[in-house]
Structure formats: structure tokens, C-alpha cells
Amino acid sequence: MIEVAGLKKSFGDVVALRTVSFKAEDARVTGLLGHNGAGKSTSLRILYGLIQPDTGFAKIDGVNVSQDRILAQSKLGVLPDGQGLYQRLTPREHMRYFGRLHGMTEDMIEQRSQELIGMLDMGSIADRRTGGFSQGERMKVCLARALVHNPKHIVLDEPTNGLDVMTTRKVREMIQELKTLGLCVLFSSHLMYEVSKLCDEIIIMAEGRVAAQGTPEQILATAEESSLEDAFVTLSERVAQI
């Protein structure tokens, strides 16, 4: 389970998070929905230990990220914003490097890499350097890198941002698959239909605040609207007026 409570964060004069609290349960897909600049990435970055909150905390399986970053990070698989890869390393070498950083043995890495290569259909590219990869191929390597240590929690920051239709579909299938494996999946998006299709639970963020959290039905009821898109707009505006 992922839990954040009372997160506040400012960058100089800019207030990124005012108060953010939410939960993401195991074996469920939780979607973090918000406009650009709503505070999604900042919340996630605090969650995976990249930056420190001014107040509040983030916990992974009860482990406070600020207090024991390394233990918390070992429970997380993360697909951060942007698809930064080492162009001169192959997908297999990426998995080996990240597996070793997670303290896995060589046998475990070998076995898990083979599994992921099958799961992500990477057989033909596993031993090619990532330098000339297409965006879809790069996304696969990023996912494999995030999953190599078999984490129980997976955080994806705008995973379908800028991808073509085929790859987007693959990523969505992947998210469903991870859920059936019992993982706690938390992902951010600014696309309404994506979130409504994939998520069991939706968190709507606006202006550095959580506007609403609940199942799609609960969100509709809170906003007193009939479509999720209208609900999203209504709730975002409601927060903006505060």
C-alpha cells in the first residue's frame, strides 16, 4: 500500500503542493488525474524519494520514505517522467545494472530478465544497444528496468505521454496485467478517458490539492455530474475557487 498524508512543498516562491493526502491499495490501479502543473509529478517524486516534502509524509508499505529512503525505494518500481536510457547499453545490460543496484544476485537477474523479455516481447532487441530505439522500444526498456527487481508497488509518471497508439495500448495492457499479479499500481495522467478506463480508484488533483478521491461512481456522485469529464472539470474548478 502507498500512502501520502499532508504533503506540502514549495520551490522558492512557487507553491507546488498545498496539502496532498491519498492512498493506493494493493491489487488495484489508482489513477492520479490532473492538469499539467497540478502537482502530480511533485507528489510522485516525493513518493519515490527524489525530493523531500516540506511537511507531511509518504509511506510505502508503512515505511516512511523520508526516514528510510533506501528501504522504501527497494519496495518500489518506478517509471519516471521522460525515457532516459543509456544509449550505449543494451536492454539486458540495463536490467543487469538496475538489478545489481537493487542487490539482486546474478542468477536472479538472469532469470527475471528472461521473464521480462518474454512478457514485454523484447526478444529481438534484448541485445541491441538502445541508441537507435523507437519510442515504443524505449518504453519497453524503461518498464523492464522498473520491474526487474519484482517490486510490489509500481509508480508510473505519465506512462503514455507522447506514445503512439500501438504502444499506448501495450502500456495499458501491461498495467492491467500488473494489477492481476496483485501489485499496487499508481499512475498519473492528464487524459480523462485513459484514467476512467483503467482505474479502480481515481484521485483528482488541482492547484496542488486533492480535489476528490474514490471509485469512478463516487467521483460522479461527489461532482453531481453524469460524465467523468464533466466531473473532472467541476471538481478542478471547485478547488480553484478555494
Partner: peptide, 15 residues
């Protein structure tokens, strides 16, 4: 590493 955006993935590791 920062310009290629691979610094963030690296820092997410438990190290």
C-alpha cells in the same frame, strides 16, 4: 546523464 534524463531513474534505486 541529467540531459539524457537517466539521472532520475538512477537516483530512484535503493542506493
Amino acid at each position: 546523464e541529467r540531459e539524457r534524463r537517466s539521472l532520475e531513474p538512477l537516483l530512484i534505486n535503493p542506493v
